[in-house]
């Protein structure tokens, strides 16, 4: 028997991305014992929350969740409030604050809007891990205009080895595009890629510049990939199914060409 979690992940790779939340919750109900495995491995659209203390928006996902509460990267507070909610050690929280500022600058430069959040946590082996999140949505002003949303989830682990650090990065981008006018068109889904890299570390902040470069590289690569798959591959399949041009005419032309070649050879 194949591993149950593998079957769940395979299923989620096949079912419509627009219904990921509904399907994940159904799976959790069927196999409650595997809820953590599933929620930890299936990326779902990021939720927008507002920090009560600062009024600033942040992103919620499984990585800043404790029970039913979510931690804000701006105030470090849980909402709904938790007395014993998990928070990073003071040293790591300092790095988290700086990382949030740096990636907020990145967000403004690439997304020109949207929301970003960075969450860090300590690992048992002395290193740390984190997640860098971006979300931007476009709501059409008219019915014929497309709507769209982009969610980036970059999960990384950092392990210091002397003056070097080893980084593992897993990036998922969820992209939803759609038009609802005379008919519905929905083009949506997610793609995931991984990479590893060693980088020099001078001080704590080196982690931000190192991760920044890695994430920037990755997003540039993945944006190209998404462009190719969304607007190239899926469109090609439609044209593979049905041809706008008459195939009969194409067949006749090929026949004619063959005849001509045969004629010229004589």
């Amino acid at each position: 028997m194949t591993d149950l979690v593998d079957s769940m992940l395979d299923l989620m790779r096949r079912l419509p991305p627009t219904r990921v939340e509904e399907n994940v919750s159904a799976l959790v109900n069927i196999c409650p014992d595997y809820a953590d495995d599933l929620l930890g491995s299936v990326d779902q659209p990021l939720k927008l929350k507002t920090d009560r203390a600062t009024g600033r928006e942040y992103l919620a996902c499984d990585y800043n969740r404790d029970g039913e509460s979510y931690r804000s990267p701006w105030s470090n507070e849980y909402d709904p409030p938790l007395d014993d909610g998990t928070v990073p050690t003071p040293k790591l929280r300092q790095l988290e604050i700086k990382a949030n500022e740096a990636f907020d600058t990145y967000r403004e430069m690439y997304f020109e809007g949207g929301v970003s959040s960075v969450f860090l946590w300590d690992l048992d082996d002395g290193g740390f891990a984190g997640v860098v999140l971006f979300k931007k949505s476009l709501n059409p002003s008219t019915a014929s205009e497309p709507s769209g949303s982009w969610d980036s989830i970059h999960v990384f682990e950092a392990a210091e080895r002397g003056r070097q650090a080893h980084y593992k990065l897993t990036s998922t981008i969820m992209l939803e595009l759609g038009i609802k006018s005379s008919g519905d068109i929905s083009l949506s889904g997610s793609m995931t890629r991984q990479t590893e890299q060693d980088c020099p570390v001078q001080n704590q902040e080196s982690h931000i510049t190192n991760m920044g470069r890695m994430i920037e590289e990755m997003e540039i690569k993945m944006r190209n990939l998404l462009q190719e798959v969304y607007f190239g591959k899926t469109r090609d399949v439609v044209y593979d199914l049905r041809s706008i041009e008459s195939l009969e005419r194409q067949r006749r032309q090929r026949e004619l060409q063959k005849e001509l070649v045969g004629f010229m050879k004589r």
Partner: peptide, 21 residues
């Protein structure tokens, strides 16, 4: 009505779904 579905799932899950009456 015309309905088109496309699924692309190499290291991901991307789907086109269209409906037109």
């Amino acid at each position: 009505r015309i309905l088109v579905n496309v699924h692309y799932y190499e290291q991901g899950n991307v789907q086109l779904e269209t409906k037109q009456n």
